[in-house]
Amino acid sequence: MLIIKDLHASVGDKPILNGINLEIKAGEIHAIMGPNGSGKSTLSNVLAGRENATVTSGSVLYQGKDLLALAVEERARQGVFLAFQYPVEIPGVGNVYLLKAALNAQRKHRGLPELDALDFLALVKDKMKLMEMNESMLYRSVNEGFSGGEKKRNEILQMAVLEPKLAILDETDSGLDIDALKIVANGVNSLRAEDRAMILVTHYQRLLDYIKPDFVHVLVGGKIVRSGVPELAHELEKQGYAWVCDEGMGVAEVQPKS
């Protein structure tokens, strides 16, 4: 589904991604871990098409197509979804309105009829139950005044409504209390499917206890320095990132900030 080859990207003059290679097949879940500032969000943003990072070399194939050639909304319509590390507030625009506009924009692209208000509400309310969200959230402005945890849940609600093919969740677990973490994980698990792939960016093993990944990658200094089975995450939790770095991979480029 997704093949990233030797991807380099910079923000301004600063190289952030220094040769990422990654292949993700339909149905798989890949976790990406790594120290602060190692480029996890940058990678997520580059895949989603945010313009603040510039791809300097390398390629990304998504469903056989050159992903980097597509506009942001085009990628979204073809099934790429990004749950933001820092969800954005949009005062004045109702949550339900945004969801409906987004879903219908995507349905239109796929040649499906737009959902009318009633069908749409039925769909959304169903998904809200799954996320254990209060319906009143629908009628508030997008993320405005939402607590940190509520914002994250709202992201997953959007994902549940839009049913993407490739979902990138950037630290969706940060800021969630234990109960909320379970609810979000539950929501994500319910979206696991044969034809859907996911990238989970996280700092904590905790999330991976609930959402079992197929692979774990460690990103340091803009490079994947380690890839492995889920147990790798346990090892990281115990030993910290110095452990992978000390093994002599990209140490020079590591500039952890805290």
């Binding site: 909304e73 979204a76 979804f81 954005v88 949009i90 004045g92 625009v93 309105y97 995507q106 839009l162």
Partner: peptide, 25 residues
């Protein structure tokens, strides 16, 4: 740009995103 990127990431064109935000306002 954050809000625009967010809306576009959800599948709206940039124009629709601006007009949605402005109309909401």
């Amino acid at each position: 740009e954050d809000q625009l990127f967010f809306c576009r990431q959800r599948g709206l064109s940039a124009e629709d995103a601006v007009s949605m935000i402005v109309n909401g306002f």
